[in-house]
Design a protein around this nucleic acid. Structure first.
Lengths: 236, 236
DNA sequence: TTGATTAATTATACCGGTACAATTATAATG
DNA sequence: CATTATAATTGTACCGGTATAATTAATCAA
């Protein structure tokens, strides 16, 4: 692991262990430099990383401070990992409804940048939080990138398998949100009444080289799910 | 304006003007360095900025490529500016329902980190897109930071006034999303039926020094609004 | 005590360098 | 022709430096 990542982790751990709160000040750059025995630019890089993740914010002329959102139980829309991490205090389970190789829908083909003749793994599952339905997920994996999936993998963490098992590197993702009312089928899966509110989250995940490998449509139970985002400036 | 920001803008403009598409390759670092006559680290900084904004992605050993989401008419949840920019092809208008100085609600006081005795500007408005209701917004501004607002400012862009008029620098924001059904009052304002789906977006905006200056609750019309997010990796 | 001026602190911009890792192109091999 | 080894390309990590801008602390004046 790289130095600046290592250091970022240690700083984050330090914040965690000492239960630092929003606004608390971290040691100054100089101190961090000498403590970790690296150059200024490496520390800066660590801090930039933590800033992107929403862990700290830096104020020129003043210092480095802890940033921390106060609410618990929210799913991060930026985590790129599913919500395992956000909801680690809760019991998350999955029930696989369907798992097979098939041809993509037009929509899936378009979003995965493949042809209608190419093959995808289609996964449909319901996910539960504390025995309550959390969401209904339909997911398409480009088979030429993810050549094999089975029930066990799909019941556990697919992304973990992709990273650890296949050695692929997940890069950026595009996420689209829509609101609507539940269809009869969706309502049945989620145990809600027909026409209840739903949030549809469509995601396209890419490898670090820009190739899209997964397109998924997730319909959330409006009673069980709340989301959060941490945004930074750099937007003129 | 700083060099690396300037260069980032120029690169973005270049992409725009030449209508580069997702996956198109930009000139290599070396070329950009000599073209802009700056050091490698400055170009790198420009590109990191563009990467954060979701404009490009970089692949080690390969090159710098254009990243571009394909769908139009989506509101960016990360833009930190309201949606003026995303929806610039559409006609956005505002109707001010209420504007006054008052004491904050408990919720607002908590999110703005002020006491119940402090004063806030309370703004309530309905926003329209192409004559259709888009959202109902309730917003609280810390009066000790934003000491004056009037109807004209509130009808136009409040954030623009805060930045240009007051010279304040907007930093990061925390955003929370909830789903629910519209109350009778909300339904009336939005012209929808009671109990229809709603997305409630709560945002807390901070200055660059970490002070929260605005807390807002926006209820979106489920028929008119769709959102997007561009996420990057840096999430272990 | 207050307010303004100055100095010290602290993060950021920018330079220019070396080493390295991932990818892609080329050449060699069977 | 396909496969493998090798070389060239290209972005990233890391160093260490100078200068500068924003903030905060200290000093001085009224």
């Amino acid at each position: 692991m790289l130095k600046y990542q290592q250091i970022a982790e240690e700083i984050e751990k330090y914040i965690e262990e000492n239960a630092l709160q929003q606004g608390d000040k971290l040691p100054v750059l100089e101190t961090l430099m000498t403590h970790f025995e690296v150059s200024k630019s490496t520390i800066t890089k660590s801090l930039d990383l933590l800033e992107k993740k929403g862990v700290v914010f830096q104020v020129r002329g003043s210092g480095i401070f802890v940033r921390r959102h106060k609410r618990k139980g929210y799913i991060s829309l930026l985590s790129n990992q599913g919500f395992k991490k956000d909801l680690e205090d809760y019991k998350i389970t999955s029930e696989v409804i369907e798992l097979e190789v098939r041809k993509p829908t037009q929509e899936a083909a378009h979003n995965l940048n493949i042809s209608l003749d190419d093959e995808v793994y289609y996964v449909k599952r319901v996910r539960y939080i504390q025995e309550q339905t959390l969401c209904l997920e339909e997911s398409y994996y480009n088979k030429s990138i993810v050549p094999y999936l089975n029930n066990e993998i799909v019941t556990e963490s697919i992304f973990n398998y992709i990273k650890e098992g296949l050695g692929l590197k997940v890069g950026f993702s595009d996420i689209y949100l829509h609101m609507d009312k539940l269809s009869e089928e969706e309502a049945a899966y989620l145990g809600l009444e027909n026409g209840a509110p739903k949030l549809l989250v469509e995601s396209i995940f890419h490898l670090t080289n820009g190739q899209p490998f997964n397109f998924s449509k997730v319909t959330y139970n409006y009673q069980q799910s709340q989301f959060f985002i941490q945004a930074n400036s750099h937007f003129s």
